[in-house]
Design a protein around this nucleic acid. Structure first.
Length: 569
DNA sequence: CGTGTTTGACCAGCGC
DNA sequence: GCGCTGGTCAAACACG
């Protein structure tokens, strides 16, 4: 799914169009008619009438010819009168026998030269003038013909480019639709189950967008679900009650049922199988790849390391803490949060301080948002989404023998010099974005302490309050600027093969103090790279997952690649 | 009273 | 089978 290319499409196409003139073999004609030609190319609307314009141009030129020709052929007749009546005739004469006219003039000139030169110098110069103009007319005629030919070529090129553009657009729409339906249906399964439990919502489709991997329209999901898939959906959505009974040991409450509910939010078997089925129907050739991709995405995790004194980084989403545990090997407790921006949102995150450096906060995201994200969250999510996609592609590649994480990461993660580590050795494939490094003093000066400033407690998640979208985006940019990318896949082939069947993820995140970011806003927005980062982020949101599938370069499962710099954005 | 946090308990997966 | 660990639940609690 090259979703991101929606953005590029316009650009590229317009570029193509705008480049056409320069690409055309430039001739003297082009120069002469430059004013005409470029406007034509620049404004396609006008292209529908190039012939008419040419004719008009012809008439205009011929009109001038007519005027002089009249004087040549009928010196006594009033030019103003014949001007409107004779054009065709003159045109005929000139067009059909331009050389003849010249010859006649020459004869005339020769004659008059000898006969009248003594009488009237004005006549002689007039004849020369006429001869010159006639010659010029002939040249213009030739150039007109060439211009017409060139116009035809350009029109053909335009239609070709337009056709390509349309085709690409259609392809894009198709891909986005497929993606959207897949995500929708997955969430539908979740919602269907969660709805039963979470009182009222049950079954009711809450209008929402799925911004994580692709845009959406949840409403379409139902209509597009096939019979067999709805069959499976029913199977996976209704057994909730069954789970309560069957899954509960010792009659122990409905813990298992609820846990089951939780698990369904990141389903491994049922919804995945359902999704696979659906995908196969939609596009059999891509079904395997896509299902594998999504499976991996569902379980993949993105870990963000950032310096922060606050208990949690601000990532634009709302979270509710549901647990805390002491983790092995770390004196600092690990906190568990789940996204509360929408009922049934499966996204969770773990927050834990680094044992070695407690100023470093490690936030791990898992799951895919099933609701619209605020701009702030989107900006934040994009980076981790890109990272997840990269991770995904890395695992995929290792398992499939195709892929180049380096390339993908370069394309989707606008990092500069911080570190992103891919680790598939963990229970879940995880990519870690290390935003604690600051290897670039110059950049650091420009955006002072983008990351290391503490957050105001209690504020972080309220994207509506302190952190404006732009501020968040800038925060993202800050982080990105201090980022470098390092891929580390310390995975055995067998593990990778197993990962291939694992689900994907879509996180949202990123730290940063809104206040600090706001303070640095001016400096950051002045940087053109910021725009590039935003564009990359948006592209990654739309196109991250698909990129993974389309990567064809091989990558060693134990490769360790460092992606140096994106400062060139 | 509603919402969010804390915290002890429960469960599943995994390794031995 | 047992113990360890990660992950989750939900009652109790705190707060506005």
């Amino acid at each position: 799914m090259d979703k991101g290319w929606g953005l590029t499409l316009d650009t590229s196409s317009s570029q193509s169009l705008s480049l056409l003139p320069s690409k055309q073999p430039s001739t003297s004609l082009t120069k002469l008619t430059g004013d005409t030609m470029f406007p034509l190319l620049g404004f396609p609307v006008n292209l529908s009438r190039p012939a008419a314009k040419d004719d008009e141009h012809n008439r205009k030129v011929l009109g001038e010819v007519d005027f002089f020709s009249d004087r040549l052929t009928k010196p006594t007749s009033p030019p103003s009168h014949d001007h409107h009546v004779k054009p065709n005739i003159v045109k005929k004469e000139i067009v059909e026998t331009p050389l003849h006219v010249n010859t006649g003039l020459q004869l005339l000139t020769a004659n008059t030269g000898s006969d009248q030169s003594t009488v009237d110098d004005g006549v002689s110069s007039d004849a020369e003038d006429k001869r010159a103009k006639t010659t010029e007319l002939a040249q213009m005629q030739v150039e007109l013909q060439r211009m017409n030919a060139e116009n035809k070529k350009l029109k053909e090129m335009l239609s070709h480019v337009t056709g390509n553009y349309t085709a690409l657009q259609m392809h894009l729409m198709t891909l986005m639709h497929q993606n959207q339906r897949t995500v929708n249906t997955e969430n539908e399964v979740v919602q269907g189950k969660a709805g039963d439990k979470n009182d009222g919502v049950g079954g009711g489709k809450v209008p929402r967008q799925f911004l994580d991997i692709g845009p959406s329209g949840a409403a379409e999901a139902d209509d597009q679900v096939s019979d067999s898939s709805s069959d499976e959906r029913t199977r996976s959505s209704t057994p909730q009650n069954n789970n309560i009974e069957v899954g509960t040991r010792d009659g122990a409450r409905n813990v298992n049922a609820k846990r089951e509910l939780g698990r369904e939010e990141s389903p491994d078997s049922e919804s995945q199988g359902w999704a696979t089925n659906k995908l196969q129907k939609v596009n059999p050739s891509n079904a395997i790849d896509q299902s594998t991709t999504e499976a991996t995405m569902r379980k993949a995790r993105v870990s963000v390391r950032a310096r922060s004194e606050a208990p949690m980084i601000s990532d634009g989403c709302q979270w509710r803490k549901y647990g805390q545990k002491m983790a092995k090997g770390n004196p600092c407790p690990r906190a568990y949060y789940r996204c509360t921006m929408a009922v049934g949102c499966p996204v969770r995150k773990q927050v834990q301080r680094c044992a070695e450096d407690r100023t470093i906060l490690v936030t791990t995201y898992e799951g895919t948002h099933n609701h619209p994200l605020p701009p702030a969250a989107m900006a934040m999510a994009s980076t981790t989404t890109a990272a997840a996609s990269m991770l995904l592609s890395g695992s995929m590649s290792s398992a499939d023998g195709i892929m180049n994480p380096n390339l993908l990461a370069r394309a989707i993660i606008p990092c500069n010099s911080s570190m992103a580590t891919l680790s598939a050795s963990a229970p879940f494939p995880t990519v870690t974005l290390d935003l604690t490094h600051n290897p670039n003093p110059l950049q650091f000066q420009r955006a002072a302490t983008p990351f290391q400033v503490p957050f105001l407690q209690g504020q972080p998640q309220n994207f509506g309050s302190g952190a404006t979208p732009i501020a968040q985006a800038q925060a993202l940019y800050n982080q990105s600027k201090f980022s470098g990318l390092q891929l580390s896949q310390e995975v055995g082939s067998s593990q990778l093969a197993a990962q291939a069947s694992r689900p994907p993820l879509q996180p949202s995140q990123q730290p940063s103090s809104a206040d600090t970011v706001s303070a640095a806003a001016a400096a950051i927005t002045a940087d053109p790279n910021f725009t590039a980062v935003l564009a990359a982020a948006i592209s990654s949101i739309i196109g991250g997952a698909h990129n993974a599938n389309n990567n064809t370069n091989n990558n060693n499962s134990t490769s360790r690649t460092t992606i140096s710099s994106f400062s060139g954005n």
